[in-house]
Simulated assay, not measured.
Amino acid sequence: MKNYILLFRGINVGGKNLLPMKELVPLLTKYNFQGVSSYIQSGNVVLKCTSQPDALVRSIVLDNFGFTVKLFSLEQAEFTAIQEANPYKIFEGKFVHCYFCNDNIELNQAKVDKYLASSESYTVIGKVFYLHAPEGIGRSKLVANIEVCLSQPATGRNLNTINKISTMLTKLA
């Protein structure tokens, strides 16, 4: 069995794509996923299973909640490597964000240059866009246009959430 991290995108926002974690966790357990736990309603789940869980989880959500979920999954080793590679981990967690993609990132550099604030800095490593936004992401034009800049769908998590997920993984061992 392998440990997986599931990062849901675009759920429980503005009354759309409602996916209550309190309902999802026991449902995933019913389908033989082990050690299932979640963190906050934005959709962070850790679990154990024998094979890549994406297709089954998407099917479970569609059958039980009535919509097709956007999902990013990582094996524990990949998640740990992403966490360790973060060049901004020394900064306060709420100002550091990781944007996860399914494919290696090929930046639309013209868009990044257009939207990047002078206080923001970023690094791309493989499928992850690391962002340090010391003024927060609420008004960040880069964040508001992140998928155009990354040329693909993405889901973001701040460093505090990344660290919490890492703690949850230690309980799966």
Score class of each variant (00 low, 15 high):
I60F: 09
G15N: 12
V128L: 04
K111Q: 15
N145T: 00
T155E: 07
M21T: 04
K70Y: 09
N3M: 09
D54M: 15
I105E: 06
I125F: 14
G93Q: 02
F72A: 04
N17M: 06
S59F: 09
Y99R: 01
N163A: 14
E120F: 01
F72S: 08
A85K: 12
D63V: 06
C101P: 00
N86A: 09
N3P: 01
F100P: 04
H132I: 05
G15C: 05
R9I: 03
V57I: 15
S59L: 14
K127F: 05
F129T: 00
V148W: 06
D113T: 11
Y122N: 03
I146W: 08
T29C: 12
K22F: 04
L28W: 04
K70L: 07
L6A: 03
N104A: 15
A77P: 05
Y4P: 01
I125C: 14
V143P: 06
R139I: 07
V96Y: 01
E23I: 04
K2L: 12
L7H: 01
Y39A: 07
D113G: 11
S151V: 00
K111E: 08
V124Y: 01
G15Y: 09
Y122T: 13
G14D: 12
V61F: 00
F95L: 12
D54P: 10
L116G: 09
R58V: 13
V25W: 01
V124F: 02
A144I: 00
T167Y: 01
L24V: 00
S151C: 09
T161N: 11
Y122F: 15
K111V: 10
T170S: 15
M21L: 05
E106C: 14
V96T: 09
P153I: 03
K127L: 11
F72K: 05
V45A: 01
N108E: 07
K22D: 08
L18Q: 13
Q34F: 09
G10Q: 01
Q76M: 02
T161S: 05
T50Y: 12
F91N: 07
Q41Y: 13
E147S: 14
Q52N: 09
V69G: 13
S42Y: 06
L47G: 04
K141C: 03
I137G: 05
C149W: 08
F8N: 02
A110Q: 15
F33V: 00
N86V: 03
Y39W: 07
Y122A: 13
G66W: 01
T50D: 15
A110Y: 14
L28R: 00
K16S: 13
Q76E: 13
T155L: 04
E78F: 08
S59E: 15
F79Q: 00
E135W: 10
L62K: 11
K16N: 13
K2T: 14
E147R: 09
I137D: 02
K22H: 10
C49K: 08
A117M: 13
A117T: 08
D63M: 04
S51H: 09
F79Y: 02
F65R: 01
E84F: 00
S42K: 10
Q83G: 06
K89P: 03
I90Y: 07
N64V: 10
F95D: 13
I125E: 15
